[in-house]
Simulated scan of single mutants.
Amino acid sequence: MNTEREKIRKLISDYLSNKIDSNQLNLFLDGFDKKEIEEEYDFVLKNHFDNLVLTEGFEQEENTENNEKLIEARSIIQKDPAKSIGFNGTSLWSSVSGIAATISIICCAVAVLWVTTQEKAPKEEDLPVISFEERYTQPGTKGSYTLSDGSFIHLNADSKLSFPQEFNGKERLVKMGGEAYFKVKRDEERPFVIEAEKIKIKVLGTSFNVKAYDEEDEIVVAVESGKVMVTDLKQNSKQFILTKNQKLVYSREENKFKVTDANISSDLIWREGVLKFNNTPFSEIERKLERWYGVDIQVEDKSVYSRKISGVHKNENLKAVLESIKFAFGIDYKINGKTVKLKTF
């Protein structure tokens, strides 16, 4: 019966440590109907409850909840004087011969305590949830924010940032979409983690730029200083370490990563109010102008999309940029409030 005794002891231990489930409870109760293991129940339950009584005073502060359950069980048992089990503070069973008369009462007590335990068990939804604040920049606007840890973030137009009021825990997590420049306050014990669409970026203290607009195929990370680790959110095995003047480009369409050494100044000049086009397809220019100036561009002549444009514009208004494009590339425009119509001539 050693195996049965070990099984009984484990069931009792699992129950008191809140690990028993309904199937285990049924298994425990079914044992009372088997004469061949009745003695093992008698032996194990007797010693278990005797030990609880003896150690009750020593563990009162640490096991207040378990003591309350024990008292509840005793009250159930003591309600039936015809089936008294002789509890006197030193031994819960005064006689082995009394076990048959108490089996049904013990079943009831264990069942009641199991239900009580399940009702008091912590639920997942009761766990604390970290709430994130959100910041948005509308098309035509930019924004700068300093987080609670001292890290600085500059948001480009039509971008969003989510972050907690205070960073608690082992990492400093923020989420972003659009484009943002980060200058992260160094904290070697708490890495700074950014979730941007398909990738996760992890740093200790560094400065870098992230571009991850929903409507664009490419996600770009360009490192100005320090070291950055980029991970594929879906495949954690794909990790890339970037250092100063390195750039990572991830193509959503091709699901491919590419790391290059490059002069990243062109990835950062938006912070200085500079628009730079370098043989750029007009479809990309259209999106950039809409975000930069907060307008809706309507292309009446689809041949415009066949053009590629180069040029640098620093702190220029929309009309000045359109005049430059008109003169150099033969694309006429008409501005009506927040709507811009384009066509070739």
Results as ranks from 00 to 15, higher is better:
1 M>I: 07
4 E>L: 07
6 E>M: 02
18 N>L: 00
24 Q>P: 08
31 G>S: 04
31 G>H: 05
33 D>H: 14
35 K>H: 13
39 E>I: 11
40 E>L: 13
41 Y>L: 10
51 N>R: 13
63 N>C: 05
64 T>E: 14
64 T>R: 15
65 E>M: 03
70 L>F: 12
71 I>Q: 04
75 S>I: 12
76 I>W: 00
83 K>Y: 06
85 I>K: 01
93 W>Y: 11
97 S>H: 11
100 A>L: 11
102 T>P: 09
104 S>C: 00
106 I>F: 15
108 C>Y: 03
109 A>D: 06
110 V>I: 15
121 A>G: 12
124 E>C: 03
127 L>I: 04
127 L>G: 00
134 E>N: 11
140 G>A: 03
140 G>D: 03
142 K>S: 11
145 Y>P: 00
146 T>V: 15
147 L>Y: 03
168 N>K: 14
172 R>E: 03
182 F>H: 01
184 V>C: 02
185 K>L: 14
189 E>S: 15
191 P>G: 02
195 E>A: 09
203 V>L: 01
203 V>K: 01
204 L>F: 13
204 L>V: 14
206 T>P: 08
212 A>S: 05
215 E>M: 06
219 I>V: 13
223 V>T: 07
226 G>S: 09
229 M>V: 14
230 V>N: 03
232 D>K: 08
232 D>F: 00
233 L>Y: 02
234 K>Y: 12
236 N>P: 07
238 K>D: 05
245 N>M: 06
253 E>I: 05
254 E>C: 12
256 K>V: 07
257 F>E: 10
257 F>N: 04
262 A>N: 09
264 I>T: 09
266 S>N: 13
268 L>G: 02
268 L>Y: 04
272 E>K: 14
273 G>W: 02
274 V>D: 01
276 K>G: 03
283 S>R: 15
284 E>P: 00
287 R>I: 07
287 R>Y: 07
299 V>T: 13
299 V>C: 13
300 E>R: 07
302 K>E: 08
304 V>D: 06
307 R>T: 13
316 E>D: 09
317 N>E: 10
320 A>S: 15
321 V>D: 07
323 E>I: 14
324 S>K: 14
330 G>E: 13
333 Y>V: 09
336 N>Y: 11
343 K>Q: 14
344 T>L: 13
